[in-house]
Amino acid sequence: MKDVYILAIETSCDETSVSIIKNGEEEISTIVLSQIDIHKKFGGVVPEIASRNHVENITIVIEECLQKAQMKVEDMDAVAVTYGPGLAGALIVGVEAAKTLAMIYDKPLIAVHHIAGHIYANRLEKKLKFPLICLVVSGGHTEIIYMKENYSFEKIGGTLDDSVGESYDKVARVIGVPYPGGPVIDKYAHIGKHTYNLPVPLDDDSYNFSFSGIKSAVINLVHNEKQRGNEINVYDLARSFEDVVVDILTKKTMRAVNEYNVKQLLVAGGVSANRWLREKLKQLCDKENVELVVPEFKYCTDNAAMIGAAAYYMYLDKRFSSLDLKIKPTDKIN
């Protein structure tokens, strides 16, 4: 079969990224321009600033990606783009650029769901074996997805309030770690000991999660200790928090793995870079004899490579979009 090259664009939040992916599994080139330093001083992503940066950078990133691959848009078989979910003003820049390329080069246009992209980041690592379960954990999402086959997504559970990434960032703020604090909490947790008593979040028979309670518990704990004049050991608090969160994530995920009798467990999204989550899932999967697939660190955060990987299966099914493609900032995966 002829090789399939897809040019993919991702601008759903604060990364302008373009990638060329061969046959849905091989990265030819990827450029990720992160705006994280720009948003740092605001303590979080400012949508209008993100949009302004995307529009200024988009064509430079496209050109750099093509140059790095030493390819032209003419060599591509399709143009893929994230259409949602994400920030409206940010998404629209990628979508308009992709539509323009599809129009002027007469290429099929493929609209990829951002979470499908995160899941398929794992395809750049290993061949997927179905059925599988995927734990999606990021700043915007906490979901358990069951996949019977390629491109079939059944959400069997998800967070009822905060995403796990959000709760990490909020806890970071409470203990004085600047945005984005999640990865720092993970580092602190490796140094500290589990000494603080925190409530276990939503430990029931469902596959749902709730992280607003534990976040409030951390805020109250810090507040009370301060009132008493006690110093907080941030390393121990980080460890206590991470233990409780990772415990419930892995417990429910492994229950899904067993109940659905799957061949693989995938982890996707920014929080899949969390070391303790990876370690613990590895231990549990080894015990249950299930293959664990986690993306390379560079594919955990937002990038266009994963969009190109996901788009390949839509290409094979000829699931193309017309040039009136619209963004869907709050689209669900199923």
Binding site: S51, T59, I104
Partner: peptide, 19 residues
């Protein structure tokens, strides 16, 4: 409109830089 303007600009710069 910020978003409206960005739509035109993105198309113009993508088209112009390509050819």
């Amino acid at each position: 409109s910020f978003t409206g303007t960005r739509i035109s600009i993105t198309i113009a710069k993508t088209y112009a830089s390509s050819f």
